[in-house]
Design a binder for these strands. Structure first.
Lengths: 176, 176
DNA sequence: CCTTACATGTAACAAGTTACATGATTAG
DNA sequence: CTAATCATGTAACTTGTTACATGTAAGG
């Protein structure tokens, strides 16, 4: 259901094609959601079949037709229903943690390399977050609540990433 | 591949049946991995088919036979291969964040209820973590590295949970 | 010449969920 | 009587990944 909800939210803000939505994901929702184009096209078609969306085909010269999807009234209701009911807690699945349970078999050099690489990725992610924050949320106190809401998600992303990074540093220090 | 790796690790520590593995998940691996019994039985059978496990059927009176799975040499190699290569970063998918991008449509009371419930769940989880820590890791400085490794995963779990909880408090405060 | 942007899809597979099914034993 | 523990599975479905497929136009 989550992908559906994401698509309902995206299309409620503005109608668009599968391709458009992918671009929006890359631009602003990347730290919130990722999906492949195959998933999008399949899901959009199903949602149309379920009456949540309508599809308007816009022919183009020398290019495939654009299929612009719009939210229907039923789609809006489905979104409101989803927003109203609390989300079920997802299952815990942390593959990296599994390696810690096979510590003796996990070669020390592979471990240092893997944790080091991860540390670097997290550092990079923090830089990306900082750039997004500077560009969009430079003055959070002057934003409306609705504008500040996405900023909150960014802030949590930052803090979780920092927490991870500190932890990696500690683990690496210990196995000096 | 991750479920496979988890099963290889679990069975490398000690052979067992699907049912045994589920119990072990509940006992000690719950903050690392969760899987349903259907997933286990299916995956164990496939792994046997791929030569990673052997299956010894132990008949029992008045109960279904126990199917005890053991790691084969190929299974050990598969595990070592998995440990040696770094994990690919998983995609980001945080359904709760999506609601923040539909802030105006998200009713304030539903929001407060959902965040409040989540806060409570996280508090409960922290209590569970604390109990596990007291029971198994009371004196971490006296543990061997291999024994301390699972403790690290618990520590990160604690800190991530705390980070989440603080963030929820801030969001709730703001929408007073 | 090569890559990126534009714009859509099919097919097969892997992973995970939900529902259904069986059947004895033990504890409350 | 009810629920939990032991112990296994099948079937249908949803979700997500990977590989394959097509074709133009613009920019370096």
């Amino acid at each position: 259901m989550s992908l559906r909800a994401i698509l309902l939210i995206t299309l409620q803000q503005e109608p668009g094609t599968g391709y458009d939505i992918l671009q929006r994901f890359k631009a602003g929702l990347a730290h919130v959601w990722q999906a492949s184009h195959q998933q999008l096209y399949r899901e959009l078609d199903r949602m149309r079949g379920d009456g949540l969306l309508t599809c308007e085909t816009v022919p183009q010269a020398e290019r495939p037709d654009r299929k612009v999807y719009h939210l229907t009234a039923a789609g809006g209701e489905a979104l409101d229903t989803w927003l109203a009911e609390p989300l079920a807690a997802g299952p815990v699945r942390e593959p990296l943690f599994a390696k810690f349970f096979a510590w003796e078999r996990w070669p020390a050099d592979a471990r240092r390399r893997e944790l080091g690489d991860l540390h670097e990725q997290l550092t990079q992610r923090l830089a990306t977050y900082a750039a997004i924050e500077e560009e969009w949320f430079a003055a959070p106190e002057r934003l409306t609540p609705a504008q500040r809401a996405p900023w909150h998600t960014l802030r949590l992303g930052q803090r979780l990433t920092q927490t991870w990074r500190e932890w990696i540093e500690e683990v690496l220090e210990e196995g000096e």
